[in-house]
Design a protein around this nucleic acid. Structure first.
Length: 465
RNA sequence: GGCGGCAUAGCCAAGUGGUAAGGCGGAGGCCUGCAAAGCCUUUAUUCCCCGGUUCGAAUCCGGGUGCCGCCUCCA
């Protein structure tokens, strides 16, 4: 079975066939680095991480590009208000962004181009569009003339004549000098509010419009046509439509083959907002001592095109699920001797897992296969039929599937302190002496300190609570 | 006002025409000195509501209700 992905262009699942055999080039819309990213943002990056990991699992060589938007209206406003230099703000939040990616186990993309490092590329692209007659100038700014591109709206399937200007309430249309409010800026002429944020270019003194960076940088690193472009559903219109218009009007080629959009995250069934008190950055959750892998588990657990409901109850369930996985790995790692090689159950699990993932990244189905496997193997372990060889096969399988999901790794256990080990031994001695009052007291005491004691056939096992 | 998506158990969540995956939680049992872990049984006669199509609908169609997204720089 081959990988099928839901393409927004066709609104259908399509068999994935890359432009170049064995290789995937993908562009994923990245953050505006003017603040800490919130868990809704991370849902998008998590989905893209899952996609790249599965592509790699399926043997593709992946080149992923994620932009960092480091010049933009809000950013300039912030700098104006605080007096801090643009670069200083963006450096700080870029650093925080990468720390957060590491915390969540999100793999690094191959390239993270920043907009301000690619002004010449954007200027070149705008010049090309101007040469092809797709632009006009007004008060020093350069706009893209939408009416010059008949295919506009192909992605969002929007009927341009039905759009209500300013309906979102997000834009003060008076700010625009465009001939038609639907035209968008490619290059914005400098004005006083921009302060020292400007570039002197052939297009004049100013700064790029937001959409142009993605067209310019994606084509620079991935070519004029590439395989996959991802982003949140909110970016479908107008951002991605504009990217298509800019790229295809400049090159005359198809820009992107597969467009993938992730649905949003809600918290307790409601839109995340500061006024509702349900707005969380990753750092907010870490401050609550939440296991970042539980956040990863939760974010990954809902199919990317379904709205996901983030609740603390679900987060707790995710922690418990991780514990089950980790305990299972501990149990396997302790096995000695020889026995059942588990080849059959391993193969069945991997097939079911891969088929689910191939179906537009059905990660819920894939994880269900893993839990079926865990239950089946636990049963065999209870029957004492498995040895180190079978355990090695099972652990190797978990490692392979962990490379895709990132939630099947062993617990990172710090060494157990000697005084804890001493008391475990003391308890064991008390048990041999049938002094259960003493042994239970020691167990309670250790539990209160965060250590769980489990008595197994081969002796006591110590774990973090 | 226009366009699009979603609604499945206490919670999270698969399934999109053939009789409800999986995880968490709850209940009972096995194991255990007692626990924990693990295993077994159980927990939605039913998939937001009302109609319709069909031998058959959570799945298709129509109408509601609710939530979410977009309508010119929000993942």
């Amino acid at each position: 079975m081959s990988l099928r992905l839901f393409n927004t262009l066709s609104r259908m699942k399509e068999t994935f066939v890359p432009l170049e055999a064995g290789r995937v080039r993908m562009y994923t819309c990245g953050p505006t680095i003017y603040n800490f990213a919130h868990i809704g943002n991370f849902r998008a990056y998590m989905f893209e991480d899952l996609l790249r990991r599965h592509l790699k699992y399926r043997g593709f060589q992946v080149t992923q590009v994620m932009n960092l938007t480091d010049v933009e209206d809000k950013l300039i406003r912030t700098c104006r208000q605080t007096g801090e230099a643009l670069k200083s703000v963006t450096d700080r939040y870029a650093k925080a962004f990468f720390e957060d990616l590491d915390t969540l186990g999100i793999e690094r993309a191959e390239v993270y181009p920043a907009a301000t490092d690619h002004i010449p590329e954007m200027v070149e692209l705008i010049k090309k569009l101007r040469g092809h007659g797709h632009t006009y100038e007004a008060n020093g700014s350069i706009y893209f003339r939408l009416s010059s591109y008949a295919k506009y709206g192909q992605l969002s399937h929007m009927d341009m004549s039905q759009l209500q200007t300013g309906a979102s309430g997000r834009v003060d249309t008076d700010e625009y000098d465009a001939e038609d409010a639907r035209d968008f800026a490619l290059w914005k002429a400098w004005d006083e509010e921009d302060g020292d944020v400007y570039w002197e270019t052939e297009l004049g003194k100013g700064r790029p419009g937001w959409h142009i960076e993605c067209s310019a940088m994606s084509m620079k690193y991935l070519g004029e046509s590439f395989d996959i472009h991802c982003g949140g559903v909110d970016n479908m219109f107008p951002h991605h439509e504009n990217e298509i218009a800019q790229a295809e009007c400049a090159t005359g080629k198809t820009f992107v083959k597969y467009w993938l959009h992730n649905a949003h995250l809600v918290v307790d069934g409601k839109k995340m907002s500061k006024s509702l008190g349900n707005f969380y950055t990753l750092r907010d959750l870490l401050a609550k001592k939440i296991d970042p892998l539980a956040i990863r588990y939760l974010l990954i657990g809902t199919h990317y095109r379904q709205p996901s409901n983030f609740t603390f109850e679900a987060l707790d369930a995710a922690s418990q699920a991780l514990r089950r996985i980790r305990d299972f790995r501990i149990r396997l790692a302790e096995l000695r001797g020889t026995g059942e090689d588990l080849a059959g159950v391993c193969a069945a699990c991997e097939t079911a897992f891969a088929e689910a993932m191939d179906d537009d990244l059905n990660v819920s189905g894939a994880l269900a296969a893993v839990f079926d496997f865990i239950r089946d193997v636990n049963k065999l372990l209870d029957e004492a039929n498995v040895g180190a060889d079978g355990a090695a096969n099972a652990l190797a399988l978990l490692d392979r599937l962990n490379a895709v999901t990132g939630v099947l790794a062993p617990a990172t256990e710090a060494a157990v302190p000697q005084d804890v080990l001493d008391r475990v031994m003391e308890r064991q001695q008390a048990r041999r002496n049938k002094d259960f009052a003493r042994s239970d007291a020691l167990r309670d005491q250790l539990l209160a300190e965060g250590w769980v004691i489990e008595d197994t056939a081969s002796g006591p096992r110590v774990k973090r609570a």
